[in-house]
Design a protein around this nucleic acid. Structure first.
Lengths: 141, 141
DNA sequence: TGCAAAATTTAGCCGCGGCTATATTGTCTG
DNA sequence: CAGACAATATAGCCGCGGCTAAATTTTGCA
């Protein structure tokens, strides 16, 4: 039994640890979604376009893609465009849907659209499936 | 004029850049709030307690405090407890209030309390003043 | 077709924020 | 009051995710 007498500080370490774990995946999620967007728009995701849209230099994008490949989310041949694995594509879709739902929720509670987009970019990675479900239920009303 | 014909991808770099900038401050905010909590509870913030509550090893806490000192948020003498500067204390208060408001909002839209606490830990750093104001207005209804 | 320009990669730097292992300092007790 | 133990600090490692500068490959055009 979790002791209710112990202050709520007891599970704080776990909360912070969880937040760190989620955050570690955040950048990867952003790159995957961006690659997915570029594939849909232009049929190809080039390093230069990824870098430009992420607001990052080319070498940074190259390194990020290398990490994606190591993680099994993307594939590419040298000097060629980047593509997503099935797993990468699935992640992109999940991330995209979560982003939209969060923005919709923020707007629904009165946050200006511009602000909602800006804040959602960082918040979205920490929205759990349980929270997402609650958001959808709320928005359905 | 910002071209409305250009797709919304135009300001994406700025959005990501903003999210990265916010994220860079996140860990610091967490440590400052924790130190503030410890000062309130025990009159002193010791490295061992900071580390324990953050779910981190002692040396990691020491290094974090060093960064806080460099940033002008904390002060400490070697082998002694850590204290906050006025700026650090003000930041702690702001962070604490923002956290509470976010948790309240999540609960208000139907997120279970446990989940709200967990998700808020990571989301909170990205909640802008504008969004916070909207949250308060919503909760006041 | 061959060369110049553009795109990509590689190399190497930085600070952050984790870690383990070790050294140092403070404290408490026998 | 001395020595053991607890707390803190230091050293050094790692991967991430930025960067600049330089090498390499691809591409497009004269």
């Amino acid at each position: 039994m979790s002791n209710p007498a112990s202050p709520e500080s007891a599970n704080l370490p776990a909360r912070f640890s969880h937040a760190r774990h989620v955050q570690a995946k955040a950048v990867m999620e952003d790159y995957v979604e961006m690659i997915s967007d570029l594939l849909a728009e232009m049929g190809e995701a080039r390093i230069a376009d990824i870098a430009q849209r992420m607001g990052v230099t080319h070498p940074t994008a190259t390194k990020a893609v290398a990490r994606l490949k190591t993680a099994g989310l993307a594939v590419s041949r040298p000097y060629r465009g980047v593509f997503l694995t099935e797993e990468g594509a699935a992640l992109a879709e999940k991330v995209r849907a979560r982003h939209r739902t969060l923005v919709d929720l923020l707007i629904a509670v009165g946050v200006p659209a511009e602000v909602a987009e800006l804040d959602a970019e960082g918040m979205e990675h920490h929205v759990s499936d349980a929270a997402l479900a609650a958001f959808r239920t709320y928005l359905a009303k």
